[in-house]
Computed example of a mutant assay.
Amino acid sequence: MRVALCAAFAVCAVTAVLPGAASARPAIEPMGGAAGSAGSAGSRVAGVERISVAAGGTQADGNSADASITPDGRRVVFSSSATNLIPGGAAGGERVFVRDRQTGQNSRMGTYDPLNPPVISGNGGYVAYPIQWVNNVRVRQYQVSTGGTASANCLAHSCNQPSLSADGSSLALVVFFRQPSPGQRVELHDGDGTSRTVAALGHTRSSLPSLSGDGRSLAYQDGQAEDVFVWNRTGDTTSGPIEGPAKAATLVQLSDDGSKVVYLSGADTYVHDTASGTAQLVTNVRGVAIDPTGRYLLYAPQGTTGPSSLTLRDLQTGTDETVSAQPASAGTDAVSSGGREVVFHSTADDIVPGDTNGVSDVFVRSFA
């Protein structure tokens, strides 16, 4: 398993990118900031849209969170306890919804409480999330166009942490088993009914699988050894640990094109290039997500575990753009291709006008 991506981590190039790097793109005014604040002179002003609203724009009457966005920025999946997001849609608990930003319509995906944030396929056609099923946890996959169940996984064991390919035909997940001793398998399930074990781990600490859009690459972590690996379907080969044996790492995400792996180590974020084996260092920040092309990194200040400000970094130019100056949270798959949109949730009431519901809402920040 530990076939190294380079002869030793010491010979892999690491390029430092400092938070104060010079900007090649103009700064933007933080949401809720007053005119004349940082970034106001000659800045471009990007739009922000509240996603957790009913079709007519009525604000949600319950908390909404855990959002992901498709690469084209059209569809957003999120969970919500709101009862008014769809006609006659009394929730009776937390539910999963998909909003089509083009049509302004919401669709509910299933009638179960999600145990973890839902994920959406790159084409916006499928949604998956784990649910409680008697004494086990199952992953259910739904077809967005119909709202119907596309698959139910792990009938004999518990499974969790789903990740979908771009067309929804491949699903990565973690299967937990109790016998002969507690452990887990990182598995890849394909639409033809076949499945394969990518990794078998003798513990149940999180492995966080992250699948590329073409379903050919899968990043995961060994949560006990604190190592990150990348599996490739071609030749069924595994490379890693990509961070080197001396570093403790936590996986954040594999970019949709499979070119970049984001992981946390110490107080820093690393963006590993799978082709060259080099790593780009972004110092003293907590990486949250990366866009599908691997160019734009969403991050929060280091030392924060809850809501905080969010910033989008162009890894090529070193430019930072403010996504939210107010306390906010985001997860993986929060950034669309080219860093054009970022989805997040916040309880702040001054991100958009007329926010009076007093609950957490989901927003999309768009950059021109």
Rank of each mutant, 00 (worst) to 15 (best):
S165W: 04
R101G: 04
G277H: 03
Q280Y: 02
G235S: 10
V53F: 03
V282R: 12
D256W: 06
A4H: 08
A21G: 03
K260M: 13
A348G: 11
L254D: 07
T58N: 07
Q326W: 00
S43I: 04
G294D: 04
V343A: 12
D314A: 08
R216V: 11
R196L: 12
G125P: 00
S79F: 00
D227K: 14
G183M: 10
S210I: 07
S169Q: 14
D349N: 15
A38L: 12
V342P: 12
G110K: 04
W231G: 01
C6N: 09
L208V: 14
L254C: 08
L201R: 08
L310E: 07
V228R: 06
V76N: 03
G223H: 06
S158I: 05
A67F: 04
V119Q: 01
G148R: 14
H272S: 07
V45T: 13
A22Q: 12
T237A: 15
P117L: 01
I86H: 00
A41W: 07
N357Y: 08
G223C: 06
V252D: 05
I69D: 04
T293P: 00
G39Q: 05
F9H: 08
S23C: 03
R196A: 13
A82H: 02
A199C: 06
A34T: 09
G73N: 07
P162V: 04
R138V: 01
I86T: 14
G294N: 05
A65D: 13
D72C: 06
I351S: 12
G32R: 11
A13I: 08
T111K: 04
P182E: 13
G191T: 10
D227A: 14
G39C: 15
T305Y: 10
V343M: 12
V53W: 01
W133L: 09
F344G: 09
T311H: 11
T204P: 00
V77E: 02
G32H: 06
D100L: 04
V48H: 02
A10S: 13
M31Q: 10
G240V: 09
G57L: 10
S212L: 12
G89Y: 00
G147N: 02
W231V: 05
V352I: 14
E243I: 01
L297Y: 06
C159F: 03
A152R: 09
Q221W: 02
L315M: 15
P327H: 11
P117I: 02
S52T: 13
A16G: 00
E29P: 01
P130L: 00
H157L: 10
H272I: 05
S329W: 01
L264Q: 15
T274H: 02
A225P: 01
G148L: 14
Q143K: 10
P118E: 00
A328K: 11
A65T: 11
T332A: 13
N63G: 04
N232I: 09
D361S: 14
A166N: 13
S360Y: 08
R95L: 09
D256Y: 08
G93S: 00
F177A: 09
T317S: 15
E94G: 00
V11R: 09
V288P: 02
A325L: 11
A128T: 02
R205N: 05
Q221N: 01
T278N: 15
Q179S: 14
R108P: 00
D333W: 06
S37T: 14
G147V: 05
P87M: 02
G338T: 13
G110C: 03
D222P: 06
W231C: 03
F229R: 04
G193N: 08
L310K: 09
P30G: 12
S158F: 02
Y270R: 13
G306F: 08
S336G: 11
